[in-house]
Design a protein around this nucleic acid. Structure first.
Lengths: 236, 236
DNA sequence: CCGACGAGTGCACTGAGTGCCATGAGTGGT
DNA sequence: ACCACTCATGGCACTCAGTGCACTCGTCGG
């Protein structure tokens, strides 16, 4: 209890980290619900009141850095230019989130085991994921403002991206963090892009004469193909 | 307190209904969080212990019949034959859920207002929707067992269906239950079906041969172009 | 040297949720 | 008519998450 806050200027509150460490030491051995907040603060050596100063609820200590991750993702979306493909952009945002998980594989796997067996934590995780999904959807709504059914398409694509991301992420977590998480998620997002993104189709490169060539992967929805045709032909 | 259980054989517990009625009488006037369980049981005229016998938590009284709705939906999925389009089937399942909402528009709107402004209820609603989504995904996983990336496609399509359903449902609820909910949701689901259902996605998923090239003269009527696309893609 | 300030803490309180047991009404068997 | 049994309900006490308030420090600026 002498040189505690040696590096307070770095923005890393030591008490917060101590609480997370204590929580993740107790949760695996006695379970989440069997561990009380008093147990955590006792092990961390801090007052009970301080716990709720750093975490609004007991569940928040399980996801200590999701606020920052969400902020990073929204910042990433806000930084993008308006030229690139919106679907591609939200897929890249999902890849960004995956990188956060992949940074601490052991931690992510441990948390996954917890959330899988504690219903309360699963519900909390859902509310977290919902915020990611809403962030993606809001971005797409902005990009699709001119489209007919823009908000519908935005919501559906955001949900699809999150679902694909989660499908790949969970399969990676289930294998204890073995394998290439980036490749797995990348493949899952490719599927979503093939369904919704259609073709990047660089805008400026026109064909020499009065002939238009449209290339689409089989599997792209018909409406998307038609939309591409309309855009290329300069109508709608 | 004389002829209480006159129709006990119908499977409708009167205490449960009384609790729901009392809750929905108190929530609008003093808010969800300001209303304690003791308030509800006092108004309903039952013991506090009985509340938790019918509802595992305070939040459950807000969604009194979601268990039944979920069971109906899973039964609907289980009843279907294996011949029809799986995507079509899950979309029909979503339409079934919508019908439950549309049966009591006033109740649905009131609940929507509650869940919109109480974060705890929103989180609970998410966990409910997650179960619907999982039910759809499990059904699709069974149908897509032979496909490559079957579970991925199942999860993504289920998420898309739920997102489309919610998008339409919320817009209907926001308008106080005015308008044709079925048509709104139908249109939203058509979008999902056009994105995923239109393509049977035959065994060969991503081969180089599945690239389609359409060549058209600029100036050709749009309908002719679309016709060409449809012919090439083998639909119509 | 002192007052302000903020981080940490202790304490008491509310309210959700649970376990246990008593009651009381129906039910069936003898 | 009586007893045993079941089951729904109610009451009571308890745990624990979360909150408001007041207090104590150490630090910093004057």
């Amino acid at each position: 209890m002498s040189s505690e806050k040696a590096e307070a200027g770095t923005g890393k509150p030591p008490i917060r980290d101590a609480l997370v460490a204590a929580a993740y030491e107790l949760f695996p051995e006695r379970g989440y619900e069997q561990t009380t907040v008093d147990d955590i603060v006792a092990l961390a050596g801090v007052g009970r009141r301080s716990f709720f100063r750093y975490f609004p609820s007991k569940e928040d200590v399980v996801f200590p850095d999701h606020e920052r991750c969400l902020a990073d993702m929204t910042a990433f979306l806000a930084d993008g230019s308006d030229d690139d493909d919106p679907v591609r952009r939200v897929c890249d945002a999902a890849r960004l989130v995956l990188r956060m998980y992949a940074e601490n594989p052991a931690f992510s796997v441990q948390r996954y085991r917890l959330t899988r067996q504690v219903p309360g934590l699963r519900a909390y995780e859902l509310s977290v994921m919902w915020r990611y999904e809403r962030a993606l959807a809001e971005y797409l709504r902005g990009r699709f403002a001119a489209r007919r059914d823009g908000t519908l398409q935005a919501d559906v694509i955001a949900a699809a991206v999150v679902a694909a991301h989660n499908n790949a992420l969970r399969s990676w977590l289930r294998s204890d963090g073995q394998g290439d998480a980036g490749a797995t998620v990348g493949h899952a997002l490719d599927y979503v892009q093939s369904a919704f993104g259609g073709v990047p189709l660089p805008p400026a490169v026109e064909q020499p004469e009065d002939v238009v060539v449209v290339v689409s992967r089989r599997g792209a929805p018909l409406w998307r193909v038609v939309q591409e045709i309309e855009t290329t032909l300069g109508r709608g």
